[in-house]
């Protein structure tokens, strides 16, 4: 049994869910729970922990190997080392999270976290079963190469995960201004979980919302969020919830007529199709902007992540 921050925090997670349900029941806080939705979210959480154990050894061995070839030796006992890893890990998380939304191969794992139409503390525990297999853990290796000890990286990742638990709630409306300016909050993350076109692909932050403000992906909460994914799941089948996007990718690859199409289905943005018959987030946002008569929002950052010919613009 490991005593990492996530394990230590689990009893707190359970108590917090109980508290949210009871406050919702008493009408003291805004909280909606649906039994089958809660069952799927919590089962995905437990399954994610078990699936993570299967790849944890490989991930830790790789991190250790990179650490043996490190540039510097950063002491775990220094306060500045913790300050530095707090910022650098959070920056890594931002790009990991952004990749997980903007490229279908990684979205196929991350979609699990977003497929509930609810937004409550149980949604926070709704985690991927396949995230260890898609190679996204490679993004954290540069921290080991810089010289942060592997246990320090693991602890910081867990701290981030624990922080992100409590923001999955409708019970907290807004925090005082300076906190909303700097930190990821329930309000900012509600926007991230919303399927309203204007909210798609925004607020990727882990702990610090400043990354979204810096990289142009910040959207403030305005109209009420409608939670879930663009095409919500039709039932509460847990196997479907865990693997549906991989199955859809498989179907598309089977039908792909060229390597270019196959690459588009795998690494294009979710909703990419060769003839533009499906809608990407960019297309949905553009349609929304057209409906309200405004200008189509520019997306300069998108281009950086986009291989030639695979951009998210509708191909009309």
């Amino acid at each position: 049994m490991t005593l990492d921050p996530v394990t230590l925090a689990t009893p707190f997670f359970i108590l917090a869910v109980i508290l949210e349900i009871v406050l919702g029941k008493l009408g003291k806080a805004r909280a909606h729970y649906e039994g089958r939705d809660t069952l799927v979210s919590l089962s995905l959480g437990l399954g994610s922990t078990l699936a993570g154990l299967l790849t944890a050894g490989v991930v830790f061995a790789a991190t250790l190997w990179v650490y043996q070839h490190r540039l510097f030796t950063i002491p775990m006992s220094a306060w500045w080392a913790w300050a530095a890893i707090f910022v650098l890990e959070d920056l890594t998380y931002y790009w990991f999270h952004r990749l997980s939304h903007e490229r279908r191969f990684w979205w196929a794992s991350h979609v699990n976290h977003h497929s509930s139409q609810h937004y409550n503390l149980s949604t926070a525990l709704r985690q991927t079963w396949t995230g260890g297999l898609n190679g996204s853990w490679l993004l954290w290796l540069p921290l080991a190469f810089l010289g942060f000890p592997p246990p320090m990286i693991a602890i910081e990742k867990s701290i981030s995960l624990v922080y992100q638990f409590w923001i999955h709630t409708e019970a907290v409306r807004r925090l005082p201004g300076p906190l909303e300016a700097v930190f990821n909050t329930p309000s900012h993350h509600r926007v991230h979980h919303a399927r309203n076109p204007r909210y798609l692909d925004s607020n990727y932050a882990g702990i610090l919302i400043v990354w979204d403000r810096m990289f142009g992906t910040f959207v403030a909460e305005d109209e009420p969020p409608r939670y879930g994914i663009v095409k919500n799941l039709g039932d509460f089948n847990i196997v479907r919830a865990a693997f549906h996007e991989w199955a859809s990718i498989g179907q598309d690859l089977w039908r792909a007529r060229s390597p270019r199409e196959a690459a588009g289905y795998l690494f294009g943005p979710p909703g990419w199709s060769p003839d533009g018959s499906r809608q990407t987030s960019t297309a949905l946002k553009a349609a929304w902007a057209r409906r309200r008569g405004g200008a189509v929002p520019p997306e300069p950052e998108h281009a950086a992540l986009t291989p030639p010919g695979l951009n998210g613009k509708p191909r009309t």
Partner: peptide, 10 residues
């Protein structure tokens, strides 16, 4: 937790 969530009818 699921039993509690279902019981609460929220």
């Amino acid at each position: 937790l699921v039993a509690l969530a279902a019981w609460a009818r929220i």
